[in-house]
């Protein structure tokens, strides 16, 4: 009997992790809050008052209550499933991040390569969903989204390999848990000077991954009417908007795991950890907002060139430095 009870508790614990912390609810609330902060700060930078910080929540619930129109040219099944698949892979990723010394909920089953692949799934979901809606504007949007993906993937791969080499030295280390433990011993990776170009490259990858200005070519409201999302309405659109917010959150969390994992808080780990998490998430997002505020949208070919030359170059500098043991 106690056996079954223990099993039950275990299952409940898993459900808790998946649904509430650090899974779906935590990521959703955190992501929407970050999106709110981003909008507010951007507005202040542009001398506007801006929406309240909880505006993304209002937007989300408003959209959930709207009618869902399925266009005649769409494939209904994939059209509805695509946003959910993106959300699932994003909230799965949260379960594998060790955050400030806390062990990850399921840290034992993931590594950098798995994360790299999981990161592509939301983009694929957006592309497949847009493609299934049968609109020519979506066609333009998804083609751009694909090129954006090709663009940032090269520097991202190089950054991840740099981190692996720095942490592992002469042995293979791909696990996020050991990256975090290494940083607890030897200090944050961000404060190793040879890693700074890689960290900059990663910060430049975040806006492309999330799709904010100047890298919002795929959705370009003023030009191709939100591209892949053009035919979406109601609940599926709400979930896609939520995906963008959660992606922002996941990327900031990944940045912390990779570059800021090394602050040892001793006995104040719970409160201090939470505080540090919030501060660094907000700071990471502010870097993005700052770029957003003073740039205009790039053309797709410029974006691609930028990522394969400037950003990949930054990552390469770090990779070469780390390769020679610096």
């Amino acid at each position: 009997m106690p056996d079954i009870l223990a099993r039950l508790v275990e299952i409940l614990l898993v459900a808790l992790h998946v649904l509430i912390f650090p899974g779906l609810l935590f990521a959703a609330v955190g992501g929407l809050l970050l999106a709110g902060i981003d909008r507010k700060v951007l507005a202040r930078m542009q001398r506007r008052i801006g929406p309240p910080i909880v505006q993304p929540f209002y937007d989300f619930f408003k959209l959930m209550g709207k009618e869902t129109i399925i266009p005649a040219a769409a494939r209904p099944g994939i059209y509805k499933a695509a946003p959910v698949i993106g959300l699932v892979s994003l909230s799965l990723m949260m379960l594998f991040f060790p955050i400030f010394g806390h062990k990850a909920a399921f840290g034992g089953v993931a590594d950098l390569i798995v994360i790299l692949y999981l990161l592509t799934i939301p983009a694929v979901a957006l592309i497949i969903g847009g493609s299934a809606s049968g609109s020519p504007f979506a066609g333009v949007g998804i083609s751009r989204e694909m090129v954006v993906m090709l663009g940032y993937e090269l520097p991202l791969v190089m950054v991840l390999l740099t981190v692996a080499k720095k942490v592992g030295g002469g042995s293979l280390v791909f696990s996020l848990q050991s990256i975090s433990e290494w940083q607890l011993e030897s200090g944050c990776l961000l404060f190793h000077w040879s890693m700074i170009p890689a960290a900059l490259a990663f910060l430049l990858i975040i806006p492309a991954e999330v799709g904010t200005q100047p890298f919002d070519v795929a959705e370009a409201e003023t030009e191709i009417c939100e591209g892949p999302l053009i035919e979406y309405s109601g609940a599926p659109l709400a979930i896609f908007k939520l995906n963008t917010a959660v992606k922002m959150f996941v990327m900031t969390a990944l940045f912390q795991v990779l570059f800021l994992g090394g602050i040892n808080l001793g006995e104040y780990w719970l409160l201090g950890g939470a505080l540090l998490f919030v501060i660094s998430a907000v700071l990471t997002i502010l870097c993005m907002t700052f770029i957003h505020a003073f740039t205009a949208r790039l053309k797709i070919e410029h974006l691609f060139k930028f990522y394969w030359t400037v950003v990949a170059g930054l990552a390469l500098v770090s990779l070469v430095l780390v390769w020679f043991g610096l």
Binding site: V14, A15, V18, L19, G23, L24, F61, M64, G65, K66, E67, T68, I69, I70, P71, A72, P76, V84, I85, L87, V88, S91, L92, L95, F106, V109, G234, A235, I239
Partner: peptide, 30 residues
Amino acid sequence: FWLILFVIVTCAVTLVAMSGARERGPISLP
């Protein structure tokens, strides 16, 4: 393990989406 996790999360997301269904607007088919 991943498959199980994936299924659990998909169920969870669907559940959450369903819970809002009472207030949600109708699905409009062509």
